[in-house]
Nucleic acid binder design. Structure first.
Lengths: 113, 113
DNA sequence: CCACCTACCTAGTATTATGAGGTATTTATA
DNA sequence: TATAAATACCTCATAATACTAGGTAGGTGG
């Protein structure tokens, strides 16, 4: 999605954020991310499922199957309390990161060696 | 530096930006980056030199050796015209990226499915 | 019937940041 | 005089992770 390299590391932040709002299943997360970002973050399934499995292993999310009246069953993911804490840390880190980036690439007038 | 994953992809942007301001040599770039970012971007030499060589191969930067009266010779890097164009694109992409990220992780009040 | 969408998944590849190492010169210190 | 530390360059192996390209299966529309 977007620039492959720029995005690294923010996937878990994005996923946890979406799951903070409501439980979702994998395929739904792909669609929701696409929609929310005006088609700029088109996370691929080859990225999503391993990422979700890792988050689950880390106990930041939990999952449960839900049968559907029609169509295949869905595996819903739910953020845990621990996941919420980690999300907060990731949010803070993102903020700091943007600030530092802007400082370095931003204006230049008075900072020389 | 910082969070390993978050940073991926922005290294070339940062390097090109610093070189836009003046020619620098590798070791100087490490120190300058550290200084500008209040010690938050501590780019490692194992990252820097391969990154510089790649930028050179892509013709975004050029280099020249400069003997020093004392101490080892320095290899100075200089941004090319093509590098300046690429830098502009990377800047734009960074801006867009921050905007989309903020949109997705930002406020939530009225954007539901 | 067949294409397409939903919905899950994995394996292999490419990229990239880092850790750990190497070389060589100069300067400060003990 | 040693010797450590700083300057200045470099490479290799490893880890993390995003993507491509595949696979399975059920349901829907033409």
């Amino acid at each position: 999605m977007f620039n492959r390299e720029l995005v690294k590391g923010s996937t878990s932040l994005l996923l946890l954020q979406l799951l903070l709002e409501r439980d979702m299943y994998g395929y739904e997360l792909v669609k929701e991310m696409d929609k929310r970002s005006d088609h700029q973050f088109q996370i691929k399934e080859g990225t999503l499922y391993p990422a979700l499995h890792k988050l689950e292993k880390q106990a930041y999310i939990e999952c449960y199957w839900q049968e559907q009246p029609k169509g295949p069953a869905r595996r819903y993911y739910k953020i845990t309390e621990q996941g919420k804490e980690v999300l907060q840390e990731k949010q803070d880190e993102w903020q700091r990161y943007v600030q530092v980036m802007n400082k370095v690439i931003g204006r230049t007038e008075n900072d020389s060696i």
